[in-house]
Amino acid sequence: MKSIRFSRRRLVTISLAGVMTGLLAPLQRNARGSDFPGYTESKGVLVDLTRCVGCRTCEAACNLENQLPAPERPFNDMSIFNEQSDHLRRPDDKAFTVVNRYDSGSSVSPVYRKIQCNHCQEPACLTSCFVNAYTITAEGAVLYNHQVCVGCRTCMIACPFSVPAFCYSSAFSPQIMKCNFCYPTRLVQGRPPACVEACPRDALTFGERAELLRIARQRIKRNKGRYINYIYGENEAGGTSWLYIAGVPFNEVGFDEDIPKQPIINYVKDFLAIVPMVLTIWPGLFAGIHLLVKRRATAIDNDPKLAESDHDKTAA
């Protein structure tokens, strides 16, 4: 009898300790994650939409640098912009970046916008990947490793910018394709990405992210009336390495203005922290309680005197 009581008390104590550990451990992790302001030396690219004339040289440079398959039509074929009324082009497994034309209501002349991975500071693709196929470098490049990827495509759903593309055409070695910031060939040596270097109008400016933010503010301030007073990417999804300034409202040129200003992981972090606790502690805890209750009931059934003596002790 005594041994049963001792076991129960001890079990409850251990269980409670386990529950408290499970609750407190993720809280400490939370504090660390949200306090991280990003690497100080983090690089970025400032995209000035008022400078882009849609020459598509960045697309050609990207294609060459990453040895991507040849496009269906040449990169200096501008008629491609006339056929986008039905659907705008987007990066896919054959092109890490595409330029689209927008006929904005606020601008007489069309506005061109380059799309590629924005290289978030706290990437949703990275946090959603359960095999750690994504890594982020100190330079801010978000890289994908096809060797560990299992092809679940969660990153495609997690990305708030819908950037990762799946190589459906490959039956045996399908993988995610997306801009890698030219990290392996250029960024690692401190050189700007191929698209930036190719841009003839300096619509793309490479530098340290903090410096680019200063330059963006300066351009907005110096050129009154040329820009909307907003830097897209400064805070979107917790901040991105690629930043944008434009002369028209961002929602008129295809930017999603509803993207939250905090990292996507923040929305699921609290829930995800509970999952290990539920999966590991709850089964043991409740199974133990169930067995104890059942064992006591069985013992009482087998020996009615036990129930009486137990009742007496409680009364005393």
Binding site: A60, P74, F75, N76, M78
Partner: peptide, 13 residues
């Protein structure tokens, strides 16, 4: 660089 090999056949602008 601009992959213009096919341009003549397709008559792109």
């Amino acid at each position: 660089f601009y992959k213009t090999e096919k341009r003549d056949q397709e008559g792109g602008e």
